[in-house]
Simulated assay, not measured.
Amino acid sequence: MLRIGVTGQAGFVGKHLYNTIGLFQEEFERIEFEKDFFEDEAKLSDFVSQCDVIVHLAAMNRHNDPQVIYDTNLGLVQKLINALNKTNSKAHVIFSSSTQEERDNLYGKSKKEGRELMAQWAKTSGGKFTGMIIPNVFGPFGHPNYNSVVATFSHKIARNETPTIEVDGDLKLIYVGELVDEILKVIKKGESNESLIVPHTAESKVSNLLALLERYKSEYQDKGIIPQLENKFETNLFNTFRCYIDIPNYFPVKFTQHTDPRGAFVEVIRLNVGGQVSFSTTVPGITRGNHFHTRKIERFAVIKGKALIQLRQIGTDEVLDFYLDGNEPAYVDMPIWYTHNIKNVGDEELYTIFWINEFYDPNDPDTYFENV
Score class of each variant (00 low, 15 high):
L213C: 03
I197C: 13
L213F: 03
G177H: 07
Y175P: 08
L173T: 02
V180N: 04
I174Y: 12
E194N: 12
E178Y: 10
G169S: 11
L184D: 05
L212E: 03
E203D: 08
K172W: 12
R215K: 11
S195I: 14
N208R: 12
V186Q: 06
V180K: 04
L196E: 11
K188D: 02
L179F: 13
L173V: 05
Y220P: 08
E203A: 08
K172P: 14
E203F: 02
K172F: 12
P163A: 06
E182P: 11
N193Y: 11
P199T: 08
K189D: 14
I165C: 04
V206N: 02
I197T: 14
I183L: 05
Y175S: 12
I187H: 06
L209F: 00
S207E: 01
V186M: 02
V186C: 07
G190H: 00
S218F: 13
E219F: 13
E203N: 10
V176S: 04
K172S: 13
S204E: 02
T201F: 03
K172M: 09
V176P: 03
E191H: 03
R215T: 15
G177L: 06
G169D: 14
G177C: 07
K205R: 09
D170S: 13
L196P: 15
L212Y: 07
D181I: 09
G190Q: 00
G169Q: 10
D170R: 15
L173A: 03
I197K: 13
D181M: 15
S204Y: 01
L209N: 00
E194R: 13
E219P: 09
L210C: 00
V176Y: 05
E194V: 14
K172I: 12
S218P: 14
E166W: 14
I187L: 05
Y216W: 07
L210G: 01
A211H: 08
K172A: 10
T201G: 03
Y216M: 05
P199Y: 06
N193K: 15
G169L: 08
S192W: 01
N193V: 15
G177V: 07
S192D: 01
I197R: 15
S204F: 01
D170V: 15
L212A: 05
E203I: 08
G169P: 06
K189Q: 12
V198W: 07
G177I: 07
L184G: 06
S204Q: 02
E182W: 15
K217I: 14
S204W: 00
V186R: 07
V186K: 04
L196C: 11
E194F: 11
